[in-house]
Amino acid sequence: MMRVDIATLFPEMCQRVLDESILGRAAKRGHIETHCHQIRDYTLNRQKQVDDYPYGGGCGMVMNAQPIYDCCMDIIRQNEEQGRPRPHILFMTAAGQPFSEEKAKELAQYDNLLLVCGHYEGMDERVIEELADEEISIGDYVLTGGELAALVVADSVLRLQPGVLSQPEGYQDESHWNGLLEYPQYTRPEEWNGRKVPPVLLSGHHGKIEEWRRQQSLERTQKRRPDLYQKYKKEP
């Protein structure tokens, strides 16, 4: 059973998302385990301040290394008490490596992950150098904090764990799993607003349906994501 910890200034926000829907049900059934931790609880000052002005000047504030470090070390200790290895530690940063389905599949192989969320203008670089196994970015844009990025990574990794989805096909047929975008999906009624379900999907001929879906997947990828299509065509 995979365990995911998130170190954040907003643990209630993160935990509420993880406790909902598919992931929440999976946790209740014992297929996954999630914990969100308040970095502010590890400050050493009376004001519970977790940030300070950046050296060299500039606008904004930078998160201190000490509370982040102490929070992470306590999470490592909690994992060890469960008999788990040291978590694979990911820092959510705008300068991190781009996240992808391939990276999600790679991370899904770990027993436990620790996702660290920055805020304000970022984190003291020294704590990243001290603890990070990887830095991850979910896109070429900037958020107000790392919480949304951590939830994206946690969701995409945890859904790959055994028992979370009812069938492996729930993710193996989806976009990006095999390098292509997913084919179009339809449900009842057969006609809606003058638009009809493609006849092949009503034929009951599984071979033709699979052929249609693959062709649609190829065409959709070529049209919408030519970069993915070219990469797919080059792969052996």
Rank of each mutant, 00 (worst) to 15 (best):
C36Q: 04
K103W: 00
T221F: 01
L158R: 05
Q66H: 13
R188A: 01
H119E: 05
H37K: 08
S156D: 10
R220H: 02
P168R: 14
P85Y: 07
V142G: 03
G83R: 03
Q230S: 10
V164L: 02
E219N: 07
R29G: 05
S100G: 11
D19I: 05
D52W: 03
A132M: 03
Y53H: 13
G139N: 00
N45C: 08
G146M: 08
G139K: 06
R188D: 03
H119W: 14
E211A: 15
D5V: 04
V152C: 08
T221S: 02
G56Q: 12
R159H: 04
E182Y: 09
A154K: 02
E235L: 13
Q78D: 12
E174V: 09
L44T: 15
D133G: 01
H206V: 06
A94R: 13
P184N: 02
Q49D: 12
G207N: 12
A149S: 05
A65Q: 04
N64I: 14
Q167L: 13
L180W: 05
W177M: 05
R224F: 00
V152I: 13
N193H: 10
M13D: 06
Q216G: 10
Q49H: 07
W212M: 08
E81R: 15
E101Y: 13
M2C: 06
H35L: 14
L113R: 06
E80T: 12
I39T: 06
L148D: 05
E20Q: 15
K231S: 13
R84T: 05
K196D: 07
A26I: 01
P11I: 11
F10C: 10
R195Y: 14
D70S: 12
Q66V: 12
I136Q: 02
G57M: 12
E20A: 15
H206Y: 11
A65W: 08
Q172D: 07
Q172Y: 04
P162I: 07
P67E: 12
G58K: 11
D41G: 06
L107D: 01
G57V: 11
L151M: 13
Q97K: 15
I6L: 06
Y110P: 09
L113G: 06
L107W: 08
L201M: 09
A65V: 00
A150V: 07
L90G: 01
Q215C: 05
T187L: 02
Y171E: 07
S21E: 10
R77I: 03
D74N: 14
H37W: 15
W212G: 01
G57T: 10
S166D: 09
M92D: 08
D133T: 06
C59T: 14
L44F: 12
M92K: 04
R224C: 01
G145Q: 06
P189Q: 05
R3W: 05
Y55T: 00
T221I: 02
R220Y: 02
V164H: 03
K208M: 14
Q167V: 13
L107Q: 01
Q161I: 02
L201A: 08
W177R: 09
D173H: 15
N79C: 12
P184V: 02
P189S: 08
C117E: 09
Y42Q: 02
H88I: 04
H206P: 04
I136Y: 04
D124Q: 00
V116D: 01
Y183A: 09
W212T: 11
C72I: 03
E135P: 01
R195T: 11
M73I: 11
